[in-house]
Amino acid sequence: MSDEHKQDQNNDENLYKAYMMKTKNDIHTSPSLSEEEQKEIIKVGSNTARNATVMISLAILLLILPLMTLITYLYYGIGGKANTMIDVVGKTIYVTEPNVSLEEMEIESEIGLFSMNVNFDTFKRIGSEDYLAEKVDVYFGLDKPKFPEKISFLEQLPPMGYGIDVVKDGQKMYHPDAGVPFNMSDEWDVLKGLPDGTVAEAYLSFSELMKPNEIEKALPKEMEIRWLAVDTGLEAKQMDKEGVPITPIGYPAQVDSTTWSPFDGDQTNEEVFLDILKLLEKNEQTAEIVSKIKSLEIKERREYVEDKGILIYGAVVTGPVPELRKLEQMKVVRAIKVGEVKLWNWK
């Protein structure tokens, strides 16, 4: 190896050693962070990460909520599901609650997230006027209803709750072959004790089954027949096959010319009644919850009526109290239950 080459090698080694020494000095002389400063850096990093997570989550929610709302509207809108539910609710009222009507044009629906609330008022005819009976709110989680929330404006408050006891407590009309579980003379005494200048609602139980067109001929003229209770083959037993009390079902006695009523005269009331039973048969769970009735047995009762025809065992009437008292002398009236009473308003 030449002297010149050795000299170059020595120069390279000296440069390398000088560079390494400078690097070590730089490391020892570079500024270091205190423990508090290091904690602050970690804290800032943690907050930044958390804020980023929150913002990402909010962005996802802002994207998902409109999508979920759209899905809800499509669920209730496609195929008219919302209209079907409202239709079932309204028609259930007509055939399970005697002398009760509603204004379908006033039914309000509010769609929430995978839910819908249906709100409406019901009315009772006492004398010649319709009085507010209840404000009703029915909540649907998708197509599953919950027990309705009701505010009653009646003097005789309806039984509260849902099930067998409610049916028993609310029973006011009885089949000719079924026992009457109250003292009938007591109810006639109630009617006799009311002032002459009042009008009242009365629930009649007949001593025999009658055809619808025979009812008006059998009762005094100075009263209005509001609702007819139909014999469906179960009322005489008063129980269904599982031992659950059977409640009356029926329909309004008169044509209602208002545009929102299903009993508007386009078909006979009997035909409309049977059509409603077919609708409720497909939506029986909803009808049972809306009507507070544990067992409707729609299919069995519909088939019986279609086979035997419509026969009436009870009715709701309203009119002046002095006229209602005359019913005591009529053999066709087996029992009476006095309903709502109002000051004179007769036509």
Rank of each mutant, 00 (worst) to 15 (best):
G79F: 12
S207E: 07
D137T: 15
K146F: 11
G163Y: 07
V136A: 15
V317M: 12
Y304M: 07
E288G: 12
N119T: 02
L327K: 01
V44F: 15
G45Y: 02
I336Q: 10
E129R: 11
W260L: 04
K172M: 03
L65Y: 14
L209H: 10
E214N: 09
E235K: 07
M330C: 11
Q254A: 11
V190E: 06
F182M: 04
K24N: 14
V230A: 01
L113F: 09
G141A: 06
K241Q: 01
K43G: 09
F263Y: 15
H5C: 06
Q7D: 14
A59R: 03
G90K: 00
S2A: 06
D121W: 14
Y19T: 12
T318F: 03
D189N: 06
L191T: 00
N269H: 10
Q285W: 14
G127I: 08
S128H: 02
K150R: 15
G45C: 02
I289A: 03
V332M: 13
I289F: 15
Q267R: 03
E104P: 01
E110P: 01
G339M: 02
G79Y: 05
Y203I: 10
D87P: 00
E4L: 13
V305P: 09
D256W: 06
K347S: 10
G233Y: 11
K331L: 08
H175T: 01
I215A: 11
N183L: 10
M105H: 00
P159V: 00
E270S: 09
V199L: 14
L191E: 10
S205K: 02
V89I: 01
T23R: 05
I215F: 11
L311T: 08
D169F: 00
M105Q: 00
E106C: 02
P98A: 08
Q329R: 14
E104A: 12
N51R: 14
R125A: 12
M68V: 09
Y162K: 08
K91F: 11
D231N: 13
L234V: 14
S34H: 07
N183R: 07
K308G: 11
T96F: 03
V180E: 01
P212R: 04
S261L: 02
E129S: 06
I225W: 01
I27K: 06
D266G: 13
M116Q: 06
M55W: 04
L296T: 05
I41Y: 07
H175D: 05
V333D: 15
E271P: 04
I249C: 03
W188K: 08
G161N: 09
F147T: 15
H175N: 00
H175A: 13
L132P: 03
T96I: 10
L74T: 07
Y304A: 05
M68D: 12
K299P: 09
V166F: 02
G77W: 06
I111F: 00
Q267Y: 03
K221Y: 14
P320L: 14
I298G: 11
L142T: 00
E97A: 14
H28F: 13
T72M: 10
G127Q: 08
S34Y: 12
V316Q: 10
L142E: 00
A218E: 04
T72F: 02
S261G: 04
I78W: 04
H5I: 13
A178F: 02
L343H: 09
K91S: 14
N47H: 15
Y73V: 04
L324G: 01
E300Y: 01
I64A: 02
T259L: 09
W188E: 09
K221N: 12
K294T: 09
K24C: 11
S32T: 13
